[in-house]
């Protein structure tokens, strides 16, 4: 989900799905609805307008779930740090959520896939409990 990012990270996420990187070899699939998702990828620093939508998407996803924060913006605000229209970063809006951070501006597709695999390992740990 794009919460007010510059689209750089979104393009890198798409690159992670291309045949060259092939995220599906780990069983990672893009789904059309948050109800089917395990991991939600957020990009961007979360603008005032998007804060409510971020919460709603998070609540629509069934448990157990993990948030994948792609890019520096989601960690600290990145280049938009201390901008007047930000209510982010994500941990301020969803303090209870389990987040996996992928730093970079934008991060490389390898890093994004590595982040998803980390999220997946975390979810497997939850399942065992």
């Amino acid at each position: 989900m794009n919460s007010g990012s510059c689209n750089g990270c979104d393009i890198e996420i798409i690159a992670a799905l291309t045949p060259r990187y092939d995220a599906e070899r780990f069983g990672i699939k893009l789904v059309g609805s948050p109800r089917h998702a395990d991991v939600i990828a957020f990009t961007g620093p979360v603008t005032d307008d998007m804060a409510d939508k971020v919460k709603r998407i998070y609540e629509q996803t069934p448990d157990p779930k993990v948030i994948l924060v792609v890019g520096a913006c989601g960690i600290s605000g990145g280049v938009f740090h201390e901008s007047y229209h930000l209510s982010g970063p994500i941990e301020k809006i969803l303090p209870e959520a389990k987040c996996i951070y992928v730093p970079g501006c934008p991060p490389r597709p390898e890093a994004i896939i590595y982040g998803v695999v980390k999220a997946w390992e975390f979810l497997e740990g939850v399942e065992k409990k």
């Binding site: 045949p19 599906e24 070899r25 069983g27 109800r35 629509q60 069934p62 157990p64 979810l123 399942e127």
Partner: peptide, 23 residues
């Protein structure tokens, strides 16, 4: 031209879905 998921992937998917919350 991709590697693709392992053939047992659908079984893993079903087990995962069974463990998830039903909204």
């Amino acid at each position: 031209m991709r590697v693709g998921p392992p053939i047992r992937q659908p079984f893993l998917d079903v087990i995962k879905l069974m463990n998830k919350e039903t909204v």
